[in-house]
């Protein structure tokens, strides 16, 4: 291995996290200003909230709020609390450790308007019953000759690190979205897991998940969980593959529809915290 003409540096995750720092505006919003929504049921607020929702929330939660990258908001199932005050806090401050960002640019009134609108979406009688056998889905998840999902994904303290941590995936993805992501993982590749191939000057191709990249450098995690950093000036090429996920597509030949239903049911049951207990 000709390590003299290209640079490899093993980094700790903390350093990468620091290099990801962006100028995210986080207004200091202490508490929800009211326990109940002062605009609840207000027709004008609901209409206005729909406009705000579609403009600001729909990108992740779907224009119809049935979930895309973010969770389905029509089920009435609020993982981080379903009271008005809890929803206010979730929207304005975001959820630490998840993809839900804070919204410091939204006024209190706008947040209440969005909540007034969201209340009109919840299915009467609560979320519909989910199909499938979670226990069987869990077996499929871990079995090396079946899903073998744990090779790359972590649940709790068990599993791999190359793919996204799934400990709370059931709280952030609807069953429909999960099924789609298993069948066609290339549809939506989360930030931090895009496929990149680095071509070294000695011709080696190193594929991994992009942890970070800028004009001058790229940091990846390889399939065996090595974190590598390259200056672009030291390598021949850095090839992005936005249409290709590191995760294999699980078509019907690998997972029958029944298997998929069970697996999704298991994933939907995962509502844990991603904070590792020490």
């Amino acid at each position: 291995m000709a390590r003299t003409d290209w640079t490899v540096r093993r980094l700790v995750t903390g350093v990468l996290a620091a290099s990801l720092a962006l100028a995210i505006s986080v207004a200091a919003r202490a508490q929800a200003p009211a326990e109940t929504n002062p605009l609840a049921g207000n027709a004008r607020a609901i209409d206005g909230g729909k406009n705000i929702y579609r403009g600001r929330c729909g990108v992740c939660h779907g224009i119809d709020a049935r979930g895309y990258r973010g969770s389905d908001l029509t089920t009435g199932d609020w993982v981080h609390g379903g009271t008005d005050a809890q929803l206010f806090t979730t929207i304005s401050r975001g959820i630490t450790g998840t993809e839900m960002p804070p919204h410091p640019n939204m006024s209190e009134e706008e947040v209440w308007m969005v909540i007034a609108y969201l209340r009109t979406l919840s299915a009467p009688g609560g979320a519909p019953a989910e199909q499938g056998d979670a226990a069987r889905g869990e077996q499929i998840f871990w079995a090396k000759d079946r899903g073998n999902c744990g090779q790359c994904h972590m649940v709790g303290a068990r599993g791999g690190r190359v793919g996204p941590n799934l400990t709370r995936i059931g709280a952030s993805r609807s069953a429909t979205v999960l099924a789609r992501e298993i069948r066609k993982p290339e549809d939506v590749i989360p930030v931090g897991f895009e496929t990149v191939t680095v071509v070294t000057r000695d011709g080696r191709k190193i594929r991994g998940a992009r942890k970070n990249e800028d004009t001058f450098s790229v940091q990846i995690m390889t399939g065996n969980e090595d974190i590598l950093s390259f200056f672009k000036s030291d390598v021949t090429d850095v090839i992005a593959e936005p249409e290709r996920s590191l995760m294999p597509a699980y078509g019907p030949e690998r997972l029958t529809d029944a298997d998929l239903t069970d697996l999704v049911r298991y994933l939907r049951s995962l509502r844990g915290t991603t904070t590792l207990q020490h």
């Binding site: 206005g48 406009n51 579609r54 403009g55 600001r56 729909g58 224009i63 009134e109 706008e110 308007m113």
Partner: peptide, 20 residues
């Protein structure tokens, strides 16, 4: 780009659409 009709209310977000 998404666009839709929106009633104007003074002081409220008046974007009438979204872009992805």
């Amino acid at each position: 780009y998404y666009g839709w009709e929106q009633e104007f209310v003074q002081g409220e977000y008046y974007f009438a659409g979204a872009a992805q």
